[in-house]
Design a protein around this nucleic acid. Structure first.
Lengths: 202, 202
DNA sequence: ACCCGGTTTAACCAATTGGTTAATATTGCG
DNA sequence: CGCAATATTAACCAATTGGTTAAACCGGGT
């Protein structure tokens, strides 16, 4: 009856692997733990995914797509910059609320093996270019100040992703609970776009 | 004659361990690699640091202090908010240019063992409180808009630290070299404080 | 010269871990 | 049913890895 029980073995493996890998990282994850989490034998992992590396790539591919996939799409239908920024921040944060471990996991593994994993994050290339052009045009129309579009994008992603990267530190420094953290994120869904727009409005 | 040759064995070990641990993380680091990097026998590691855990804590304590230590001090002598923000961003970025692997390393290990490592990042508690009060006062004087000081601090740190966390992705997405990355960071030393101040100025 | 404390090393050990194998269970199908 | 293909498991293996041990080295004091 459980959704986990209904799913195919391969899906259960990927789900378990995503949990273990994103928590412990490639080096810290243990095949046995993935097997336990999926409720199967360790040898069965190698039956579906020949090696740890292959299982990891399956998880990473899925995770990076999950994180970078439909974020860009959210702003494709926006015709002006400010709503696009709001849509981007909202979509990005929604994704991370779904799976808060993902950003740090991806950053970490990209750092470990930049060349090997580069191919996985190439999605949304044209959507990103589209957004950069949108910024450029808004600048030419004088709606915003003179700013490098790519720098603006870096700042946007920074403000979105950082609370999830630094969550343990924020929780300790500000002494907040899980619930307080979620409220903070909800507040940021509105305050971050305001922060950005206020700083670039001409 | 080399500085490494002159240093004491313990210093060489800590230097090598910091390099290996911050690149590979606790789980991925190998004691043998630390020993090789330090140019000594593996057993000698356990002579100076009884266990991997103890060596790791030595490195982490040093690293977290290096990252969070004197950043706050830089703004203690500032009497008004905007120069304090500029000083903070400059100091923070200087630290990270020195050792670009540190932020991701610390974020990662804090995520792995939040309780065990929490004690190490308690430095600068009162300086941080001092900064938050400074923001509060500026708000009461009407110099800046109505913003939660802690949220402002999160945003500041986000804009400083994110390029170093996401460096491999930025390098791949924007197709930039190491040299271009350093130029980008140098640009951000000025643009980030401007970005922040523009968005909070009343 | 001799010893003694701290330092360094080579060899070794036990536990972990990714991966394999061969046998068993299950499912689908003629 | 019977049989073949697929799914699953228990037992096992080789390599890696953190850690230990006992011996050797080395400088200084007497």
């Amino acid at each position: 009856m459980n959704i986990v029980e209904e799913a195919t073995t391969e899906q259960r493996i990927l789900l378990a692997a995503r949990k273990v890998f994103s928590q412990k990282g490639m080096a810290g994850a243990r095949m046995q733990e993935v097997a336990d989490e999926a409720g199967i034998n360790k040898a069965l992992l190698h039956y579906y995914f020949r090696s740890k590396q292959q299982l990891f790539e399956g998880v990473f591919k899925d995770s990076s797509q999950r994180q970078f996939g439909c974020i860009w799409d959210s702003l494709k239908q926006c015709d002006s910059l400010f709503p696009a920024i709001e849509a981007f921040v909202s979509a990005y944060m929604d994704k991370m609320i779904e799976d808060p471990m993902l950003p740090l996991f991806i950053a970490n593994e990209m750092n470990r093996d930049p060349e090997g994993l580069a191919e996985f994050i190439d999605r949304g290339k044209e959507s990103r270019a589209c957004f950069l052009r949108m910024v450029e045009e808004a600048r030419e129309r004088g709606e915003i100040i003179d700013i490098d579009p790519r720098e603006l994008l870096v700042n946007m992603m920074a403000l979105c992703v950082h609370p999830f990267i630094a969550r343990p530190m924020l929780k300790h420094i500000h002494g907040i609970t899980d619930e307080a953290f979620r409220r903070m994120i909800q507040k940021r869904r509105k305050s971050v776009p305001e922060f950005i727009i206020r700083s670039i409005r001409a």
